[in-house]
Design a protein around this nucleic acid. Sequence first.
DNA 1: ACCATTTTGTTCACGGCTAGAGCATAATAA
DNA 2: TTATTATGCTCTAGCCGTGAACAAAATGGT
Lengths: 400, 400
Amino acid sequence: MRTVTGATTSVELREHNRARLLRAVHECGASRTRSQLTKDLDLARGTASVLVTGLSEDSLLHEEPSAEHGRGRPTQIPGPHPCGPVALAADLREDGWEIAAGELGGRITPLAARPHDGTPEGAFGPLAAALRTHLQRYGSRAVGIGLAVPGPVRDDRLVDVSHLGWRAVDAVAGLASGIPAGTLLHVGNDTAFAALAEARRGRMAGVRVGLHLHVDFDLGGVLVVDGRPLGGATGVGAEFGHMPLTGRADPCLCGARGCWAMEVGANALLRHLGLAAGGGRGRDQAQAILARSGKGDPEAAEAVDAGARALGRGIAALVNAHDPEIVTLSGLGVDLFTQGRAALSEAYLAGLMRIRVERLPELAPSELGWSGALLGAMESVFDAFLTPEGLRTWRPRERP
Amino acid sequence: MRTVTGATTSVELREHNRARLLRAVHECGASRTRSQLTKDLDLARGTASVLVTGLSEDSLLHEEPSAEHGRGRPTQIPGPHPCGPVALAADLREDGWEIAAGELGGRITPLAARPHDGTPEGAFGPLAAALRTHLQRYGSRAVGIGLAVPGPVRDDRLVDVSHLGWRAVDAVAGLASGIPAGTLLHVGNDTAFAALAEARRGRMAGVRVGLHLHVDFDLGGVLVVDGRPLGGATGVGAEFGHMPLTGRADPCLCGARGCWAMEVGANALLRHLGLAAGGGRGRDQAQAILARSGKGDPEAAEAVDAGARALGRGIAALVNAHDPEIVTLSGLGVDLFTQGRAALSEAYLAGLMRIRVERLPELAPSELGWSGALLGAMESVFDAFLTPEGLRTWRPRERP
DNA sequence: ACCATTTTGTTCACGGCTAGAGCATAATAA
DNA sequence: TTATTATGCTCTAGCCGTGAACAAAATGGT
């Protein structure tokens, strides 16, 4: 039977409304006043009063006076409690990692960043140690860890990173030395997390159906429906890059042929100029090619245009199939959009159905920079925590 | 802000539980006993008692004694009330239409079927008249109409049927003469409705992520997530057929090039044998080709194999991208599966990523025959009715 | 400086809901 | 016939949100 959400009993009603209030605070970055929240959530003032008081006593919220006054009694702004929940986030890439902490409302504090050698041990060892340090520092405030990885994730733990030759590397086991058993660990694809961040705090906010494409060494994409990136049956979504949209039949590292991902990204740029590519190295060289193209180097510009054309053609196919309101681009996708705009647009328009052209979905570069995956990893932890089930795990601090 | 579902007040709690109970009855085809429903929905016996009594008084449910007894007091089976809600469903195809009525639990009664001449007037006129007749017969029991059409639907009313040259035909206006203003009319794509039926009462029941492909004159496909086919931003989902997966660049009627839909379906079969194709006619000829292929005719078999290969190749691309648990086929897809199985499987396996082969999604022909779209249209009406908002529109019959 | 006005926060009585206990009911098994 | 078992019905207790009355805290005009 389908799972039905929503409260069933009086007690669940209260839990549901507590979670609803906290999510509203989190979503707006702790910027809405209590009276505004009361109206937005359609609550009676009395109910809001009881909820806020309860959440404050449980050290989940802390009210601050609002800076701006109108006429009438001034209202308060509910925001993160100084002893409130903290989500740890980690972004593991082919050539390094970084970690950060996020609090209710989404404010991020960078904690550490380091390059690694590309082996599972070299990557997970120091990362686990760093996580252990900060987990100890936050103590019971830490409600979970989100880990972004550059490849498909199966069963919430097995990671494949084709550029590094990783096959079914167990991320949970890799971090076991750093995080106590029972700690909530969300392992997810970097593209899916970047899409989540875009849907919550980026250009896809409020959009019902959107498409997010993340370009790094190669390309990943995922559909976002009602603010949530679509995962697959085994958890492995975000693999739009492995559809045969190139019209060619070159074998791809994934096992299929003619994959779209082979023609878009840093690897494609390097290959186009006859450089070594495919090992998860060469981010600087790719950036150099983009810089040369920006300065008018024709050879570099042609490489960029080829990537932009392939990107545009694939986007058109996906727009035809899925009818998104907007298509957002992150990572190198932003550079391809900026520097190869004409080539991209032309290929995009040429590949669309007529009815799609009539209501043309916007192509929008992300404004979150390269931190989308990190932000999304944090959001994923709060998504799980800000539910009746998640909040039941929270033990409030003793009051001072 | 994201819309949050679920009850907020005590009154909504009751409405929520009423809807939950009715949906549970509808989903299982009115086969579960009251005691089973009580357990499944995690209700107290007292609560179930109050709910069932109330719904019976509102002529939404009617309890019948259960045929099978165990030990202990025998339980009842809640099912459709003799004066309960009825959903009308219509399936409009390129060459004809049929209508039916469905009651709570999903039992369907065929009402009428007729060929048409392919013009909007020739199709909608008699259809509207037939609907009017049956709407009058059911009176206030009719809670809505679901209409399946063979093409994309925009803004819940504008229909494009490329094979018939229909462009932005207004289905609501077309039926206005037959249905009173205010009647709920759900216009939807036939593939999406077929997928909905498959998800509720077919081989995709209980599946979290599935892919449904419907083959008729050409091919449509849609992703099913948590029992609901994914629509797009403007309502036009189910257009997987218009991705350039053929590796060729022939112009398609849709305005793009190299569309997958051009190589799969009745039109492709006819074209492969040098017959006229593309006008929404020739269903019989296509069936004849399939029959010849079944009897060993090599020319017909090659046409079938070509379609099966193209189907398999495209399925692989979509499985790579979306990671479904199962792929279901309806319409001519069932015949291509049966008669071109070897060609289909080979192309399917060859196009998959390695990690998809390791956990191979099953290819499953539908068991609902050609009535999937009709069933889905009915389900769509009940989906809207069996909610707190929908039930609020219901006025119970006076008790005898 | 003062007071009316406006808006927000708090408290509490009220009605509605579900849980759960106790009892009645209706079948089977011995 | 009687014990057993499972189900349905009824009623009370406890919890929840609403909305009204009241308190609090600001602004704006006089």
